[in-house]
């Protein structure tokens, strides 16, 4: 892992990987969207609205996955002071927030025709909302310091505290939701999903993951470039 601590080496590998990841993302999303929008059957109960699921479910996966990714990067940053782990955590956070937001928006768009309301205080929706807030807090703390290194460290501690708390929050929200309202929701999940719907979903999931990897590398590259620009302009000021 420490072999990748050198930004120059990271940039070399990233530049080599980036075209492949981009092509993979475009291919997976293209095939996945075609299968999801045209080649898969409408649901016998939900009709065409089921197609929202092909964006909604992978977004929810990614929103969770990216928080865990940030937590792992934060642990690496705090334990080994790995410089690229900080950059990765900073780059990943807005992407994760974006996916959490997308999950909420698509869920809401699906809920309106299905449940007749834009928002239900359902356990999963509420947990995703809390996760979205955790992302926003992480981003705000990341940018709250004059020195970026303080922002990195503080946000890393917050991400680790957050990842300990996510299962607790999930559990408590489940308890709260069963306490206050009956389960009234049609559930899509479980192994009961038909292969004609599962395949587009899995391809979309893969496409989203590749999209995240691509975006992460682009954002990390621009973050490293920005740091270099800062260092260069400081050196210029010193020489002047």
């Amino acid at each position: 892992m420490h072999r990748f601590a050198n930004p120059a080496r990271f940039l070399r590998i990233a530049n080599a990987l980036l075209p492949w990841l981009t092509v993979g993302t475009v291919a997976c999303l293209g095939i996945g969207l075609y299968m999801a929008l045209f080649a898969s059957p409408p649901d016998y109960q939900q009709g065409e609205t089921v197609r929202i699921m092909y964006v909604h479910v992978p977004s929810a996966w990614m929103a969770l996955f990216i928080y865990v990714f940030i937590a792992i990067a934060s642990a690496c940053s705090l334990i080994w002071r790995h410089p690229l782990a900080d950059v990765a955590a900073k780059a990943a956070s807005p992407i994760g927030a974006g996916f959490a937001f997308l999950t909420l928006v698509t869920g809401s768009l699906w809920g309106e025709p299905m449940w007749g309301t834009w928002w239900v205080w359902d356990a999963r929706l509420t947990s995703m909302l809390v996760l979205f807030f955790l992302y926003l807090g992480h981003m705000a703390l990341m940018g709250a310091f004059e020195e970026q290194s303080r922002g990195y460290r503080a946000a890393a501690v917050l991400a680790l505290v957050g990842v300990i708390n996510i299962p607790i929050i999930k559990f408590s929200v489940d308890w709260w939701s069963t306490l206050h309202q009956p389960a009234s929701v049609i559930r899509l999940d479980g192994p009961t999903i038909d292969p004609s719907m599962l395949w587009p979903l899995l391809i979309m999931g893969l496409g989203f993951k590749l999209f995240f990897a691509t975006l992460l590398i682009v954002r990390m590259k621009s973050e490293l470039m920005a740091a270099r620009v800062r260092a260069l302009s400081l050196a210029q000021l010193r020489n002047a």
Partner: peptide
């Protein structure tokens, strides 16, 4: 900033 960071973590305590 403190409320933004802390309020999501307060939810379990509030619920129980």
């Amino acid at each position: 900033l403190v409320p933004l960071l802390v309020l999501p973590l307060y939810i379990p305590v509030l619920i129980f």
